[in-house]
Design a protein around this nucleic acid. Structure first.
Lengths: 126, 126
DNA sequence: CTGCATGCAAATCTTTTGCATAAGA
DNA sequence: TCTTATGCAAAAGATTTGCATGCAG
């Protein structure tokens, strides 16, 4: 496989994401990075996000509507997704790891991980 | 609000979905419905799926890749999503409803529901 | 009749990709 | 110099929408 080469853009994407807990979309990241790299392209942002995800450095979150979101917190944690504004909020809840066992008991295959998405209306929307 | 009017297409979409447990995409449904309605359009399929979802008759499932999938089983249940072939499999597992309480304890808003997605490789892919 | 639903096509939105050039090692 | 990364633009994939016409009530 090919060797990874340093890139200022990629580092910037990674460090920007590390400052945010609100799971920005690729486009939000793009708009922000334009401050430092006026000519950066959305393609570069998507390419790097996919690369970082494949390296396990970040996580992608898809919900039922809108663009995918990205999360620099790769620790196992769950999300609350607002049904109205689509905001994604981290839940620092007690471990629910045992649900993986319950699932494994039902499913005749290998379960590598899980993510639980809770939904409802966030404080701002209700 | 406006009144719902019967449509053969919508009934057909609903009953076709009821026969499947593999969570087809809008396009799969479209191809199937063309057997009975040669001129049906994808737009009609999407419009009816959105309508049925808003009525609570079906559920939409988004995963990290590929098109959204639709599920006629609106009972609370969780899914296994294959990381390789993207197959979505229902998990008839023991209740994990208590995780909702754990989440509510952390989140200062209203939690209406949740869905847990387990991932890994399915039998065919490993 | 009246209004919701459809078919068709164009438009949108999000993400991916090809290619020539720039930059890291 | 060699190879990976970038910018730009076009392409692709999924979903939505405007509009004239069809069909249910």
């Amino acid at each position: 496989m090919k060797k990874l080469k340093y890139s200022r853009q990629r580092e910037s994407i990674k460090s920007f994401l590390a400052t945010r807990t609100d799971h920005p979309t690729a486009d939000t990241i793009y708009e922000k990075l334009r401050e430092d790299f006026p000519n950066i392209s959305l393609g570069t942002v998507y390419r790097n996000l996919a690369l970082l995800e494949s390296l396990g450095a970040i996580t992608k979150i898809s919900s039922n509507s809108g663009a995918d979101r990205y999360d620099s917190n790769t620790d196992l944690h769950n999300h609350f997704i607002c049904s109205k504004c689509q905001r994604v909020i981290d839940l620092e809840m007690e471990s629910i790891d045992h649900i993986k066992e319950l699932a494994a008991r039902q499913f005749n295959g290998t379960i590598d991980g899980y993510i639980a998405h809770f939904y409802g209306l966030c404080n701002e929307c209700q």
